[in-house]
Amino acid sequence: MLTRLRRGAAVTSAVMAAALMLAACGGGSSTSPAASTSDGTASPAAAQTGSAATFNLTPDQNRIRTEKVDAIAALVPQEIRDRGTIRITGSAGTAPPLRFYADDDTTLIGSEVDLAELFSDVLGLQVEEGTADWAQNFVRIDSGEADAFISNVTVTEERKEKYDFATYRQDTLGLESRADDPWTVSGRKDLAGKVIAVGSGTNQEKLLVDWNEANVADGLAPIDIKYFQNSTDYYLALSSGRIDGYLGPNPTAQFHAASTGETTVIGTFSGAGDALQGEIAVLSLKGNGLAQAYAAAINHTIENGTYQQVLDRWQLGSEAVDKSEINPPGLPKTG
């Protein structure tokens, strides 16, 4: 569990630990390119102090809200409409800025919570937030204990056999460099000869290994891939110049860069490779109609601007989608 995050060293340590947790256990999710990269400046919802942004990590979030739309609310399955609440499940204590605990160690906050609340506003429903370990979230959907799984869930072909999806965010990796020594990167060839750290056993490690093999096949210098035992060692190595960059989940990279001012995100990439754009989506039981309601609600918040405001609040504006889609192509089955 993440508790009592503060700027400076405490934020660096906690965010890095959370980033590794998300990367290693993100439900098999992979990632895809964002439309643009962030310059690390604070969003309107974050107070600027020097070169670092201060995020609201208290239980009192003063969330961005919107109005109910009757025509969209009518798309919600009758049983849920009669109940008046939507039961949301997701992981907790994973990684800022996605879904984590406020500084009271009890209240769930983060971009995923804000978006769940925003979409529910359009649907005219009160949110009942629940938490579970990653695999248990699927069990809660299967059993009917929860209606929707909103917690950085990537669309995959295997999951589409059992669930419906309504997309709301791109799924990306971010490459961090020191803020005082940024360098230019647009693709794998720019990493030739560089020392890059990555978490072992993660999606981004597979991508980095694939890039290195392709670079070597093209006659370029190999990428020197580094691994560290402790979570904080990645950022210590970056600050000391022992590595040129750290490849990890983009949301935590953006949050770390904005919180500390010590790093900057110099590139975002598709964790699924060049052939596919991964998507983060609301997951619900296949065929119950909830995905259609969510897609309409998401598109309404995109149109009225509140969706972008939530993403900007957590430094995730670069992961915005132009339109929510139902069951788009997902990551292919493995094996």
Rank of each mutant, 00 (worst) to 15 (best):
Thr334Asn: 10
Gln308Thr: 08
Ser13Ala: 15
Arg83Thr: 02
Phe165Arg: 04
Leu175Gln: 11
Val76Ser: 02
Thr232Gly: 14
Gln277Lys: 03
Pro97Arg: 04
Thr268His: 03
Val69Met: 00
Phe149Lys: 06
Thr252His: 10
Ala19His: 02
Arg159Pro: 03
Thr85Glu: 00
Ala24Asn: 11
Ala221Trp: 06
Glu176Leu: 13
Gln204Arg: 04
Val69Ile: 02
Ile88Ser: 01
Val282Asp: 03
Val265Asn: 03
Asn203Phe: 09
Gly267Pro: 06
Ser200Gln: 15
Ala17Cys: 12
Ser36Tyr: 04
Ala132Trp: 08
Val127Thr: 01
Ala9Trp: 01
Ala272Asn: 01
Gln229Glu: 14
Thr172Met: 00
Asn304Asp: 12
Ile86Thr: 00
Leu220Tyr: 09
Leu125Ala: 08
Ala132Ile: 02
Gly248Tyr: 11
Gly278Asn: 05
Ala46Phe: 11
Ile266Tyr: 10
Thr252Arg: 11
Thr202Lys: 03
Glu158Ser: 10
Asp82His: 05
Asn152His: 13
Ala14Trp: 00
Pro59His: 11
Arg65Gly: 08
Glu176Ser: 10
Ser120Gly: 02
Gly287Ile: 13
Arg178Cys: 13
Ala258Cys: 14
Leu115Cys: 10
Gly174His: 01
His300Phe: 00
Gln277Trp: 01
Asp244Thr: 07
Gly27Ala: 12
Phe165Asn: 02
Lys333Ile: 15
Asp322Thr: 14
Ala53Glu: 04
Leu108Lys: 00
Gly261Arg: 15
Gly93Ile: 01
Ala166Thr: 02
Thr306Ala: 04
Arg6Trp: 00
Ala74Val: 08
Val139Thr: 14
Gly219Ile: 14
Thr49Ser: 00
Ile72His: 09
Ala45Glu: 11
Val153Trp: 03
Gln126His: 15
Gly124His: 06
Met21Phe: 12
Ser200Asn: 14
Ala46Lys: 09
Phe149Trp: 07
Phe119Arg: 10
Leu290Ser: 13
Phe100Tyr: 07
Thr131Met: 05
Thr58Met: 06
Ala281Val: 10
Gln136Pro: 04
Lys226Thr: 15
Phe165Met: 04
Tyr246Lys: 07
Arg140Pro: 01
Gly26Tyr: 02
